[in-house]
Nucleic acid binder design. Structure first.
Lengths: 257, 257
DNA sequence: GCCAATCATGCATAAACATGCACAATCACG
DNA sequence: CGTGATTGTGCATGTTTATGCATGATTGGC
């Protein structure tokens, strides 16, 4: 029916694209008049362009797509690989919705970095370093135990902290061992720290201890509990068999990859 | 037939956003005249922007929001030198043996790094990041306020934290302001955070607020206290004179180097 | 404590919208 | 040539959206 003056669909859409490309908005009613088609047709054009990501539909017309701004690259600070593996082995015990206590120590700092963030976990800790690491993981809830912070252990261990811990019943506790031995059990360098770990072990429903190989077969001045008080001991796979045998008492020994 | 010249809704809101982005307030009546729409329409725009967290509604118009959603650790990385100077200015108020409360925020993280470690200070904080920084300074004693840690504010702010704070009377508090304005006073992004700051201000013998220039003249949803409630406001020396004048009320304004 | 400015809310209306349908033009195959 | 499917378009429909206005409540300066 029509002859020369009418634009074909492609031409029309190309022209709309061109205008949007020069950072101009377009208005449905105007385009309809200009191209001598109904507004319905223009709206259909705009819908198609929007679906192809070439414009932003708005009430009355369309806007150019804004220049995408650069996103920041993620950075990763990872602890030592061995501790990360121990932490991963402990992580196998956590289940959806659990409250997990992270004691002080570098292995538990690694745990703060590798615990799954999709299980709706609540992390409790008395160590500011670990708390700071957990805070950077959006999927984890964090509860901080306060109190006088001892600079040697790097965690709050005093009466205040103990009182706060008494209000809690964690589902699982990752307990940091300063030293582990079949004879003396788990021991600590500081008496308040040992006291805190004892309370923690009593409060928690399940207790895990992880220790790198260097700590196995050593002892520290303040006893925490014998190994039988813990549900699992997590050690490295390449531990000397003799040392490993010295641990093989009541609690299952879990070997990390 | 004439071509539509009026702005589309999105264009209007984008323009408002742009002006707020350049740290300017907007006034409802002016915008209505300028865009040739009713004030009701502008108010609706501002309400929507506020609901999306892109401005703060105030009587007569709206103010920009200060720091657009950077994550905590990202925020800690920026503006450190300027914040270090602010922190140094605040440090002039601390004296030997004092108990210093460091509220959450990047300026107070800077304070944790620059506070003198030879004055036998006791640092109290409810922010794990700051606690972690203080722990690395051997000369500082650290007391940690525990509780449920809010990921937005990066600090423990709930009932537990408040109860712990009630037991303390810090000699001086470095209070982190999310936004500072002569009109709205000190405001915060979170209501529990605001509540905590109010309690902190009451408990502490002396209260300092420091704010980088971007925060001056802005407001956040939750009021803490009017400026008169603080002993000193610490600002940067190169702050725009108009903005600076807008603050010149009761508390002395201290200018950092 | 007064008054004007500012505000939230509900309502009315016109514009813009999506959707389904009809029709003409085009194409695809024989 | 068909003729049947596909496509582009316009129109009728009922819905949604943006806006202005009326009303009554809040606010902030004086």
């Amino acid at each position: 029916m029509q002859i020369t003056s009418a634009l074909l669909l492609e031409e029309r859409q190309n022209e709309i694209r061109r205008r949007l490309g020069s950072a101009d908005r377009v208005i449905a009613g105007d385009l309809a008049l200009e191209f001598n088609v109904s507004e319905d047709t223009i709206r259909r054009d705009l819908r198609e362009l929007a679906a192809a990501g070439q414009c932003i539909r708005v009430y009355g017309g369309a806007l150019p797509v804004p220049a995408p701004d650069l996103s920041l690259s993620e950075r990763y600070g990872i602890g030592t690989e061995r501790k990360r593996r121990l932490a991963l082995a402990m992580s196998d015990f956590v289940e959806r919705g659990m409250t997990v206590f992270l004691d002080a120590g570098s292995t538990n700092l690694a745990a703060a970095l590798v615990l799954p963030d999709t299980l709706d976990l609540t992390i409790v800790t008395h160590a500011p370093h670990i708390a700071a690491a957990v805070m950077d993981r959006p999927g984890l809830r964090l509860f901080m135990i306060g109190g006088k912070v001892d600079s040697k252990t790097g965690a709050a261990t005093g009466a205040q902290a103990q009182r706060a811990l008494e209000q809690l019943r964690p589902d699982i506790a990752f307990i940091g061992a300063c030293a582990v031995s079949g004879v003396t059990g788990v021991t600590a360098f500081d008496d308040e720290d040992a006291e805190f770990k004892r309370l923690l072990t009593r409060q928690s429903r399940m207790n895990l201890v992880a220790a790198v190989s260097e700590k196995i077969g050593t002892a520290a001045p303040y006893p925490v509990f014998p190994l039988s008080a813990f549900d699992h001991i997590v050690i490295e796979g390449d531990l000397d068999p003799a040392k490993r045998a010295s641990l093989a008492i009541s609690p299952p020994v879990l070997v990390s990859a």
